[in-house]
């Protein structure tokens, strides 16, 4: 019995089944190759990243300077609270910096707690005269980001 006569004996429902199996097989095999290529590309791209690029990830488009994030984590003790204070003139800031830098540090610096009256300051070109006391800078970069605490 040839294929044509076999097909002609199939009911409408069985033709539908054949259609689904055929289409899913063809698409599955074609897109399997594409999926592997894509997944390999992602794996290679991730592999070439530095440890800090991987850990900061989305923060790379927010924090401007990775060192600021790592210095904040190194300098501010776990048990201390901190606040992120922003200004308007951070060099090399992205459109995401000012809207999201505070929430990103909340994620990154945990278990340190953000608090409005914290002595530890992560200052993004902030107005130091409005911090509520004399500001002692412990670390700063050339973009106008500094980390310090109120004396």
């Amino acid at each position: 019995m040839n294929v044509a006569s076999r097909v002609s004996r199939l009911s409408v429902a069985q033709l539908g089944v054949v259609l689904v199996v055929l289409v899913s097989s063809v698409f599955g095999l074609v897109y399997f190759v594409k999926a592997l290529t894509r997944l390999n590309d992602v794996a290679t791209a991730n592999d070439t990243l530095s440890f800090s690029d991987r850990e900061i990830a989305a923060g790379n488009s927010i924090v401007v300077d990775q060192q600021a994030a790592y210095q904040a984590r190194a300098l501010i003790p776990h048990s201390e609270s901190y606040r992120v204070v922003t200004g308007e003139t951070v060099k090399d800031a992205t459109p995401l910096t000012l809207p999201f830098v505070e929430s990103w540090y909340r994620y990154f610096l945990m278990p340190r707690r953000p608090a409005a009256d914290a002595r530890w300051i992560v200052c993004y070109a902030c107005d130091v005269s409005k911090l509520g006391g004399p500001y002692s800078v412990i670390w700063r970069d050339k973009n106008g980001i500094s980390i310090g605490r109120l004396r």
Partner: peptide, 29 residues
Amino acid sequence: YLEALFRSGRLGGLYEFDAWAFWVPKAKA
């Protein structure tokens, strides 16, 4: 496919907004 998916995720960072904005911070908390 699953092996390739594993490799793609092994060294991937948190890029999705919801992931770093609240899912993972809640887990860290």
